[in-house]
Design a protein around this nucleic acid. Sequence first.
DNA 1: CCACTAAATCGTATATTTACGATTAACGAT
DNA 2: ATCGTTAATCGTAAATATACGATTTAGTGG
Lengths: 120, 120
Amino acid sequence: MKSITLTPAGRRPLPRSRRTGAPLDVELARLAKALGHPARVAIVRLLLGKKECVCGDIVDRLPLAQATVSQHLKVLKDAGWIQGSIDGPRVCYCARPETGRKFLELAQALAAREEEGETS
Amino acid sequence: MKSITLTPAGRRPLPRSRRTGAPLDVELARLAKALGHPARVAIVRLLLGKKECVCGDIVDRLPLAQATVSQHLKVLKDAGWIQGSIDGPRVCYCARPETGRKFLELAQALAAREEEGETS
DNA sequence: CCACTAAATCGTATATTTACGATTAACGAT
DNA sequence: ATCGTTAATCGTAAATATACGATTTAGTGG
Protein backbone atom coordinates (compact mmCIF):
# COMPACT_ATOMS: atom_id res chain seq x y z
CA MET A 1 0.00 0.00 0.00
CA LYS A 2 1.41 3.21 -1.01
CA SER A 3 1.96 5.77 1.50
CA ILE A 4 0.12 8.70 0.26
CA THR A 5 1.98 10.08 3.15
CA LEU A 6 0.40 13.38 3.49
CA THR A 7 2.22 15.94 1.52
CA PRO A 8 3.28 18.88 3.64
CA ALA A 9 0.12 20.78 3.11
CA GLY A 10 -2.15 17.95 2.00
CA ARG A 11 -4.38 16.57 4.68
CA ARG A 12 -6.12 13.33 4.92
CA PRO A 13 -9.89 12.84 4.45
CA LEU A 14 -10.72 14.46 7.75
CA PRO A 15 -13.09 11.99 9.40
CA ARG A 16 -16.52 13.34 9.93
CA SER A 17 -17.37 16.89 10.30
CA ARG A 18 -14.57 18.23 12.31
CA ARG A 19 -13.98 20.25 9.23
CA THR A 20 -15.87 23.26 10.36
CA GLY A 21 -15.63 22.41 14.02
CA ALA A 22 -18.50 20.92 15.93
CA PRO A 23 -20.99 23.65 16.86
CA LEU A 24 -20.95 22.71 20.50
CA ASP A 25 -17.19 22.92 20.61
CA VAL A 26 -17.34 26.36 19.09
CA GLU A 27 -19.99 27.46 21.54
CA LEU A 28 -18.17 26.18 24.60
CA ALA A 29 -14.92 27.69 23.38
CA ARG A 30 -16.64 31.01 22.83
CA LEU A 31 -18.03 31.15 26.35
CA ALA A 32 -14.83 29.87 27.90
CA LYS A 33 -12.75 32.39 26.03
CA ALA A 34 -14.92 35.25 27.23
CA LEU A 35 -14.46 34.01 30.76
CA GLY A 36 -10.74 33.53 30.27
CA HIS A 37 -9.55 36.57 32.16
CA PRO A 38 -9.48 37.01 35.95
CA ALA A 39 -11.14 40.40 35.75
CA ARG A 40 -14.00 38.98 33.73
CA VAL A 41 -14.49 36.08 36.10
CA ALA A 42 -14.57 38.58 38.93
CA ILE A 43 -17.17 40.64 37.13
CA VAL A 44 -19.41 37.69 36.41
CA ARG A 45 -19.11 36.47 39.97
CA LEU A 46 -19.85 39.90 41.29
CA LEU A 47 -22.94 40.21 39.15
CA LEU A 48 -24.19 36.73 39.92
CA GLY A 49 -23.88 37.54 43.59
CA LYS A 50 -25.57 40.89 43.46
CA LYS A 51 -28.28 40.49 40.87
CA GLU A 52 -27.45 43.90 39.53
CA CYS A 53 -24.69 46.38 39.77
CA VAL A 54 -23.93 49.79 38.42
CA CYS A 55 -20.91 49.96 36.18
CA GLY A 56 -19.13 52.37 38.48
CA ASP A 57 -19.28 49.94 41.35
CA ILE A 58 -17.61 47.32 39.21
CA VAL A 59 -14.88 49.75 38.28
CA ASP A 60 -14.38 50.55 41.96
CA ARG A 61 -13.85 46.91 42.76
CA LEU A 62 -11.28 46.21 40.12
CA PRO A 63 -7.72 47.47 39.99
CA LEU A 64 -8.19 48.56 36.42
CA ALA A 65 -8.88 51.78 34.62
CA GLN A 66 -12.45 52.63 33.72
CA ALA A 67 -11.75 52.21 30.02
CA THR A 68 -10.33 48.75 30.58
CA VAL A 69 -13.25 47.63 32.68
CA SER A 70 -15.61 48.92 30.04
CA GLN A 71 -13.76 46.84 27.51
CA HIS A 72 -14.08 43.73 29.63
CA LEU A 73 -17.77 44.43 30.09
CA LYS A 74 -18.14 44.61 26.35
CA VAL A 75 -16.48 41.24 25.89
CA LEU A 76 -18.81 39.68 28.43
CA LYS A 77 -21.81 41.39 26.91
CA ASP A 78 -20.92 40.27 23.39
CA ALA A 79 -20.56 36.71 24.61
CA GLY A 80 -23.91 36.84 26.36
CA TRP A 81 -22.59 36.50 29.88
CA ILE A 82 -24.06 39.76 31.02
CA GLN A 83 -26.39 42.48 29.89
CA GLY A 84 -26.66 46.13 30.67
CA SER A 85 -29.56 48.49 30.85
CA ILE A 86 -29.46 52.22 30.98
CA ASP A 87 -30.55 53.63 34.30
CA GLY A 88 -30.48 57.36 34.22
CA PRO A 89 -26.92 58.54 33.85
CA ARG A 90 -25.54 55.12 34.71
CA VAL A 91 -25.62 51.64 33.29
CA CYS A 92 -26.88 48.80 35.36
CA TYR A 93 -25.34 45.44 34.58
CA CYS A 94 -26.62 42.03 35.48
CA ALA A 95 -25.63 38.48 34.70
CA ARG A 96 -27.62 36.34 32.32
CA PRO A 97 -28.32 33.13 34.20
CA GLU A 98 -29.19 31.21 31.09
CA THR A 99 -25.68 31.71 29.80
CA GLY A 100 -24.19 30.39 33.01
CA ARG A 101 -26.52 27.43 32.74
CA LYS A 102 -25.59 26.77 29.15
CA PHE A 103 -21.93 27.04 30.00
CA LEU A 104 -22.28 24.51 32.79
CA GLU A 105 -24.28 22.25 30.53
CA LEU A 106 -21.65 22.28 27.84
CA ALA A 107 -18.84 21.80 30.34
CA GLN A 108 -20.66 18.90 31.93
CA ALA A 109 -21.36 17.33 28.57
CA LEU A 110 -17.67 17.58 27.88
CA ALA A 111 -16.70 15.98 31.14
CA ALA A 112 -19.35 13.34 30.79
CA ARG A 113 -17.35 11.75 28.01
CA GLU A 114 -15.11 10.62 30.73
CA GLU A 115 -17.77 8.22 31.94
CA GLU A 116 -18.49 6.70 28.60
CA GLY A 117 -18.51 2.97 28.90
CA GLU A 118 -17.40 2.92 32.46
CA THR A 119 -20.20 3.54 34.83
CA SER A 120 -23.83 3.84 34.06
CA MET B 1 -7.41 70.78 35.12
CA LYS B 2 -7.65 68.43 37.93
CA SER B 3 -4.61 68.41 40.07
CA ILE B 4 -5.47 65.71 42.51
CA THR B 5 -4.26 62.35 41.43
CA LEU B 6 -7.23 60.49 42.69
CA THR B 7 -9.27 58.78 40.09
CA PRO B 8 -12.43 60.55 38.94
CA ALA B 9 -14.64 59.93 41.90
CA GLY B 10 -11.94 58.72 44.25
CA ARG B 11 -11.49 54.99 44.45
CA ARG B 12 -12.89 53.20 47.38
CA PRO B 13 -10.71 50.98 49.51
CA LEU B 14 -11.01 48.09 47.05
CA PRO B 15 -13.11 45.58 48.97
CA ARG B 16 -11.31 42.46 49.93
CA SER B 17 -8.54 41.13 47.91
CA ARG B 18 -9.57 42.02 44.45
CA ARG B 19 -6.34 43.86 44.32
CA THR B 20 -4.29 40.97 43.11
CA GLY B 21 -7.29 39.01 41.94
CA ALA B 22 -8.94 36.31 43.97
CA PRO B 23 -7.06 33.04 43.55
CA LEU B 24 -10.16 31.17 42.48
CA ASP B 25 -10.92 33.74 39.83
CA VAL B 26 -7.43 33.42 38.48
CA GLU B 27 -7.64 29.65 38.47
CA LEU B 28 -10.98 29.52 36.71
CA ALA B 29 -9.84 32.11 34.19
CA ARG B 30 -6.70 30.11 33.54
CA LEU B 31 -8.59 26.92 32.80
CA ALA B 32 -11.26 28.69 30.79
CA LYS B 33 -8.70 30.50 28.72
CA ALA B 34 -6.92 27.27 27.89
CA LEU B 35 -10.23 25.84 26.76
CA GLY B 36 -11.10 28.97 24.85
CA HIS B 37 -10.47 27.67 21.37
CA PRO B 38 -12.63 25.26 19.37
CA ALA B 39 -9.67 23.08 18.46
CA ARG B 40 -8.72 22.71 22.10
CA VAL B 41 -12.24 21.86 23.15
CA ALA B 42 -12.27 19.26 20.40
CA ILE B 43 -9.00 17.82 21.65
CA VAL B 44 -10.15 17.61 25.25
CA ARG B 45 -13.43 16.04 24.21
CA LEU B 46 -11.65 13.56 22.02
CA LEU B 47 -9.30 12.57 24.79
CA LEU B 48 -11.99 12.33 27.42
CA GLY B 49 -13.89 10.02 25.14
CA LYS B 50 -11.01 7.79 24.24
CA LYS B 51 -8.94 7.48 27.37
CA GLU B 52 -5.82 7.87 25.32
CA CYS B 53 -4.83 8.93 21.90
CA VAL B 54 -1.67 9.19 19.89
CA CYS B 55 -0.81 12.68 18.82
CA GLY B 56 -0.98 11.80 15.15
CA ASP B 57 -4.58 10.70 15.47
CA ILE B 58 -5.45 14.06 16.92
CA VAL B 59 -3.73 15.81 14.07
CA ASP B 60 -5.67 13.70 11.59
CA ARG B 61 -8.94 14.76 13.13
CA LEU B 62 -8.31 18.45 13.07
CA PRO B 63 -8.12 20.70 10.04
CA LEU B 64 -4.88 22.16 11.28
CA ALA B 65 -1.22 21.70 10.57
CA GLN B 66 0.79 19.42 12.80
CA ALA B 67 2.73 22.30 14.23
CA THR B 68 -0.44 24.12 15.15
CA VAL B 69 -1.97 21.10 16.82
CA SER B 70 1.23 20.58 18.74
CA GLN B 71 0.97 24.15 19.94
CA HIS B 72 -2.59 23.63 21.10
CA LEU B 73 -1.55 20.47 22.88
CA LYS B 74 1.12 22.43 24.67
CA VAL B 75 -1.40 25.00 25.84
CA LEU B 76 -3.65 22.28 27.20
CA LYS B 77 -0.72 20.50 28.80
CA ASP B 78 0.57 23.65 30.45
CA ALA B 79 -2.88 24.33 31.86
CA GLY B 80 -3.16 20.79 33.19
CA TRP B 81 -6.02 19.70 30.98
CA ILE B 82 -4.07 16.87 29.42
CA GLN B 83 -0.85 15.01 29.80
CA GLY B 84 1.37 13.17 27.39
CA SER B 85 3.62 10.21 27.76
CA ILE B 86 6.23 9.05 25.34
CA ASP B 87 5.43 5.76 23.68
CA GLY B 88 8.21 4.79 21.37
CA PRO B 89 8.41 7.26 18.55
CA ARG B 90 4.99 8.68 19.36
CA VAL B 91 3.42 10.55 22.18
CA CYS B 92 0.30 9.27 23.82
CA TYR B 93 -2.00 11.94 25.20
CA CYS B 94 -4.75 11.57 27.71
CA ALA B 95 -7.02 13.90 29.60
CA ARG B 96 -6.57 14.63 33.29
CA PRO B 97 -9.98 14.03 34.85
CA GLU B 98 -9.13 15.96 37.99
CA THR B 99 -8.73 19.10 35.95
CA GLY B 100 -12.11 18.63 34.36
CA ARG B 101 -13.54 18.11 37.80
CA LYS B 102 -11.89 21.20 39.19
CA PHE B 103 -13.08 23.23 36.24
CA LEU B 104 -16.65 22.11 36.79
CA GLU B 105 -16.34 22.79 40.48
CA LEU B 106 -15.14 26.31 39.92
CA ALA B 107 -17.76 26.97 37.29
CA GLN B 108 -20.50 25.66 39.53
CA ALA B 109 -19.22 27.69 42.44
CA LEU B 110 -19.39 30.71 40.21
CA ALA B 111 -22.95 30.07 39.15
CA ALA B 112 -24.06 29.07 42.60
CA ARG B 113 -22.85 32.29 44.10
CA GLU B 114 -26.29 33.73 44.35
CA GLU B 115 -25.46 34.96 47.78
CA GLU B 116 -22.48 35.91 49.82
CA GLY B 117 -19.40 37.74 48.79
CA GLU B 118 -16.48 35.46 48.90
CA THR B 119 -14.88 32.45 50.43
CA SER B 120 -11.31 31.51 50.39
C1' DC C 1 -27.47 77.46 28.65
C1' DC C 2 -23.40 75.43 31.56
C1' DA C 3 -21.20 72.34 34.78
C1' DC C 4 -20.91 67.75 36.51
C1' DT C 5 -20.99 62.78 36.44
C1' DA C 6 -21.09 58.19 34.19
C1' DA C 7 -19.80 55.17 30.72
C1' DA C 8 -18.55 54.18 26.00
C1' DT C 9 -15.38 54.85 22.45
C1' DC C 10 -11.00 56.43 20.22
C1' DG C 11 -6.19 56.12 19.53
C1' DT C 12 -2.28 53.79 20.62
C1' DA C 13 1.37 50.90 22.53
C1' DT C 14 2.57 46.45 23.85
C1' DA C 15 1.87 41.60 24.47
C1' DT C 16 -0.14 37.41 23.33
C1' DT C 17 -2.36 34.14 20.16
C1' DT C 18 -2.81 31.70 16.13
C1' DA C 19 -1.25 29.67 12.16
C1' DC C 20 2.09 27.77 9.06
C1' DG C 21 6.41 25.84 6.82
C1' DA C 22 10.88 24.42 7.99
C1' DT C 23 13.85 22.32 11.02
C1' DT C 24 15.28 19.45 14.70
C1' DA C 25 15.32 15.53 17.99
C1' DA C 26 14.14 10.99 19.19
C1' DC C 27 12.91 6.51 18.18
C1' DG C 28 12.50 1.90 15.57
C1' DA C 29 13.94 -0.60 11.84
C1' DT C 30 17.12 -1.68 8.14
C1' DA D 1 25.21 4.55 10.31
C1' DT D 2 21.14 5.65 7.51
C1' DC D 3 16.31 5.85 6.60
C1' DG D 4 11.56 6.84 7.66
C1' DT D 5 8.32 8.29 11.01
C1' DT D 6 6.61 11.11 14.84
C1' DA D 7 6.21 15.10 17.33
C1' DA D 8 8.36 19.22 19.34
C1' DT D 9 10.46 23.43 18.38
C1' DC D 10 12.04 27.47 15.60
C1' DG D 11 11.11 31.53 13.00
C1' DT D 12 7.79 34.43 11.42
C1' DA D 13 3.60 36.89 9.92
C1' DA D 14 -0.93 38.30 10.88
C1' DA D 15 -4.52 38.86 13.93
C1' DT D 16 -6.34 39.62 18.79
C1' DA D 17 -6.10 40.93 23.34
C1' DT D 18 -4.90 43.97 27.06
C1' DA D 19 -4.26 48.24 29.12
C1' DC D 20 -4.29 53.13 29.45
C1' DG D 21 -5.17 58.27 28.80
C1' DA D 22 -7.94 61.24 26.23
C1' DT D 23 -12.09 62.19 24.16
C1' DT D 24 -16.87 61.76 23.24
C1' DT D 25 -21.63 60.84 24.30
C1' DA D 26 -25.51 60.98 27.29
C1' DG D 27 -28.09 62.19 31.30
C1' DT D 28 -28.84 65.18 35.70
C1' DG D 29 -29.16 69.20 37.88
C1' DG D 30 -28.13 74.12 38.56
